[in-house]
Write a protein that binds this DNA or RNA. Structure first.
Length: 571
DNA sequence: GCCGTTTTCGGCCCGACTGTTTTCAGTCG
């Protein structure tokens, strides 16, 4: 619902821009972005808090709220239908071609009657476009390249996929003697679940060789821009990477600016203006004098607030909290002592328990819970009671052998349609830790789904509710649940809600985490590893917790083994 | 169309790069 509405508002913005309407396009886009990053479904907001609730969404006022209501009730927004009649269908699509904005797209339509990407491609191939003033051969070439990119590009990529690529490019850049710093900013540094492009900031003694190196790296497929301080490339796996060369005295303000997000930055710049200052990527200025910019902290402090961690910079209350110095002390990446959700060869994982435990130990963990599938799910080689017992003996052996790491005996059991579990209590009782998850019946209506989960949570042996909403990023919607009720039950029953750190899941997500904490529920990060290399997802789980404003006390993984065992032995 | 510690009108972030231009508009982030 939110995404559909966002797309409608983006389209309205595009058409309005072509019609040379001032300001409204920005307003619609702001609302669209706001909807995209909203944790809650607008439909639920409307149901619970009515029209007023909608206008409380940042960037949504009376006008846009009315359109949201219209969409909820009728499935359409009349304004868009009207606008579409004035501008040929497909024309707004043309703006998706990189380098082609509203004005030039409209010009092509007016002069050549081009009104779709397909027609655009044909015209460019026939060299009809270079005859229009302000278009020449180069424009034609770029349009074709842009269309090609559009066809191949998969859009936003998962954080878990982009992060290693970014780190690799950073490390390559750091091999240059000119490079003093190379740091990724942007949505990657905010640890968003998907990344549009990678932004790398570089401090270098001499920009020229750095730009040359960057645009000629072996991973480069195509160079989009190459200037004195900025270069843009597309990698062979179709990820756009921007590089900026920064002076050391501006490094903090540049890092701040390029870490964003957009709303956060605009908010800060407005605050700066109110103080009679100007904030840009070059620094915070009073007249022509730079008063901050070397570090991010300096910039935030000079604006009258405390430092804001990158993961929080989404303009969703963090600036107000920072001004009042009331930001939470976020859980640290190094506070995470263990992993609660690991599969081994015993079910559908690919490594032995011993291999996994050794890797975990090398990663600095002090405990992991082996939670293989247990019960009826034959396809994942689920363990029955007998095999669980056998596995337990193997774990005992390895525990004796390895020091500094403790392997907990666990299982991931299925929540059946009626809310019972796929393994008998007599078996669950013997385990250190039990994760209950839904692996079937994704489409149950909200009430039934919630009831089913609540019933499972009443089982005395359940410790963690696995991937509570079941969504897969870009692939499957959440199942419909009443998260509020589930959080209340979690608090009451001392059951932790999982933050599944698998990059395709990230479930609970940041907004859910915030809600869970507000309701007093604890959270447990699990990587859902099916191979020892997946154990490194733990940091991504910590990132979600941080984006959800979690503190150490909210996260089970911060407990020492002793404290943890106490938590698990609930009455 | 949105928003308000300059509040119900009058603002709306700021700068780099490109291609086409001969000083700049368009696009992007």
């Amino acid at each position: 619902m939110n995404q559909e509405l966002a797309e409608i508002f983006y389209e309205i913005a595009d058409i309005l821009e072509m019609k040379k309407v001032q300001w409204k396009p920005q307003a619609y886009r702001k609302a669209a972005r706001s909807l995209e990053s909203l944790g809650e479904n607008v439909k639920d907001i409307y149901k619970e808090k009515g029209f007023k609730g909608l206008t409380e969404i940042p960037g949504v006022g009376e006008g846009i709220a009315k359109k949201i209501v219209q969409f909820i009730e009728t499935g359409k927004v009349i304004e868009l239908e009207k606008l579409k009649k004035k501008i040929p269908e497909g024309l707004a699509d043309m703006m998706k071609v990189p380098g082609l904005g509203a004005k030039r797209a409209l010009k092509l339509y007016k002069r050549l009657g081009i009104k779709s990407i397909k027609k655009l491609e044909e015209a460019a191939k026939k060299h009809e476009i270079q005859n229009i003033e302000t278009f020449k051969e180069k424009s034609e070439e770029n349009i074709l390249k842009g269309i090609e990119f559009l066809k191949r590009s998969k859009g936003r990529v998962l954080l878990g996929y982009a992060l290693p690529i970014a780190r690799y490019i950073e490390s390559q850049l750091k091999t240059l003697k000119e490079v003093k710093k190379a740091v990724s900013a942007g949505s990657l540094r905010r640890r968003e679940e998907t990344i549009g492009d990678i932004d790398i900031l570089i401090v270098a003694s001499n920009a020229e060789p750095v730009v040359k190196f960057f645009t000629e790296m072996p991973v480069v497929e195509r160079v989009l821009a190459k200037g004195k301080t900025k270069a843009v490339i597309i990698t062979k796996d179709d990820i756009q990477v921007d590089a900026r060369i920064i002076k050391p005295e501006s490094f903090g303000s540049a890092l701040q600016y390029f870490t964003g997000n957009k709303e956060h930055n605009i908010h800060l710049r407005r605050l700066a203006l109110k103080k009679g200052l100007k904030l840009s990527e070059y620094g915070l200025f009073k007249g022509k004098k730079q008063i901050a910019g070397k570090t991010e902290k300096e910039v935030y402090n000079k604006l009258g607030m405390c430092y804001i961690e990158p993961e929080l910079r989404t303009d969703s209350g963090e600036i107000e909290a920072a001004l009042k110095k009331k930001l939470p002390k976020l859980v640290g990446y190094d506070n995470i002592k263990g992993d609660f959700h690991v599969h081994s060869k015993w079910s559908d994982g690919s490594d032995s328990i011993e291999e996994i435990a050794k890797t975990a130990k090398d990663n600095g963990l002090s405990y992991i819970a082996i939670c293989d599938h247990a019960g009826h799910l034959k396809i994942a080689h689920s363990l029955d009671e007998k095999r669980i017992e056998k596995q337990g003996k193997e774990i005992d052996k390895i525990n004796k052998k390895l020091s500094e790491i403790k392997i907990l005996k666990g299982a991931e059991v299925d929540i059946m349609a009626d809310g019972t579990l796929s393994l008998k209590n007599s078996a669950l009782k013997k385990l250190d830790i039990v994760i209950a998850s839904i692996h079937s019946g994704f489409r149950f209506p909200k009430e039934k789904q919630t009831e089913r989960i609540l019933k499972a949570m009443d089982n005395p042996y359940v410790n963690i509710l696995g991937h509570p909403t079941g969504r897969l990023i870009q692939r499957r919607e959440s199942y419909e649940i009443d998260l509020e009720k589930i959080c209340e039950k979690a608090k009451e029953r001392k059951i932790a809600l999982e933050i599944n750190a698998n990059p395709e899941r990230f479930d609970l997500n940041d907004a859910n985490v915030k809600e869970a904490i507000a309701k007093g529920a604890k959270l447990a990060i699990g990587t859902d590893s099916h191979s020892k290399t997946h154990l490194s997802f733990l940091e991504l789980g910590a990132a979600i917790a941080r984006r959800g404003w979690a503190e150490k006390k909210d996260i089970l993984n911060c407990l020492s083994l002793k404290q943890l065992m106490k938590f698990l032995r609930k009455t």
